[in-house]
């Protein structure tokens, strides 16, 4: 049994807009149930029945803080954007398996698409403390979608490249174009982003890797099986057995 309660009240420390759709929220509270980068929290939204699963961008047990990056895409995330500093928010924390940090890979590639860049930041921090040399590639549709995350990576000593589909910022094209153009060495990849991007990476990159996927969820902790995916190892719950799966586990039809 877990010794930490995963259901905790947090206080909003800050909540600000980064782009036309992306926001960043910092919360203070008991983070102890979080054990790995790539885990997520399930946010209780006043007036909504179901919680909203949001990946953890960064956290610190010492400070008792966590950072969430989120796109406003519907009523739930719209309500999140209206939460002022000091607001109490109930979270289920430390959900999902998170990214692996296998010590045998020295040059991990961190590949993000849009809001999927979020969970790669804490992963980069963890890999740096392990003495690894990760490189990040952040993909967006257009310059207006970029929320300046490359600077956050650079602050922890991780080089970050940008790709935009329309070429308005960084390399024109996809994250794979950056890898090719820059000749980035990588012995493993960790990715999070839209499914077409993850499909391209899992079926196109010839290095081992893992991807974090998302879905509408009921509970977020494995009870309702509303987010099952068929894998090479049978039905898996995205919320509990994932959200991170090794590339060979996923079936791309």
């Amino acid at each position: 049994m877990l010794t930490t309660n995963i259901n905790n009240d947090f206080k909003v420390i800050s909540n600000r807009r980064l782009t036309h759709k992306t926001w960043v929220m910092t919360l203070g509270g008991d983070t102890r149930a979080i054990t790995a980068p790539g885990q997520f929290v399930n946010v209780a939204i006043p007036g909504k029945y179901l919680r909203r699963p949001i990946s953890i961008c960064d956290y610190s047990h010492e400070r008792g803080e966590l950072v969430l990056l989120y796109d406003v895409v519907g009523e739930g995330t719209e309500a999140m954007s209206l939460m002022a500093p000091g607001t109490t928010v109930n979270l289920l924390t430390g959900l999902g398996n998170g990214f692996s940090t296998d010590p045998s890979h020295d040059h991990p590639l961190l590949l993000g698409g849009g809001i999927g860049c979020a969970p790669l930041l804490n992963l980069a921090r963890r890999l740096r403390t392990m003495g690894k040399s990760p490189v990040a590639v952040l993909g967006y549709n257009t310059a207006a979608d970029s929320f300046g995350m490359e600077r956050w990576f650079e602050e922890i000593g991780v080089e970050a490249f940008i790709a935009t589909v329309d070429g308005s910022l960084g390399t024109k094209g996809f994250v794979t174009d950056v890898i090719r153009e820059k000749g980035l060495p990588g012995d493993y990849f960790h990715a999070c982003g839209p499914m077409p991007m993850l499909r391209a990476l899992c079926t196109g990159l010839d290095i081992p890797g893992e991807v974090s996927i998302e879905s509408r969820m009921g509970c977020g902790f494995g009870a309702c099986v509303c987010c099952s995916v068929e894998t090479a190892n049978g039905a898996k719950r995205i919320c509990k057995d994932g959200p991170v799966f090794r590339k060979e586990e996923l079936i791309w039809k």
Binding site: K48, M217, C224, V225, C227
Partner: peptide
């Protein structure tokens, strides 16, 4: 049974709709 395709769940006022399909 694997059950139904996703999405299997929808938000409602004071509740939810699920269609897991007896996985």
């Amino acid at each position: 049974r694997f059950g139904n395709p996703l999405p299997r769940v929808a938000e409602c006022s004071a509740g939810l709709i699920n269609s897991v399909g007896l996985q």
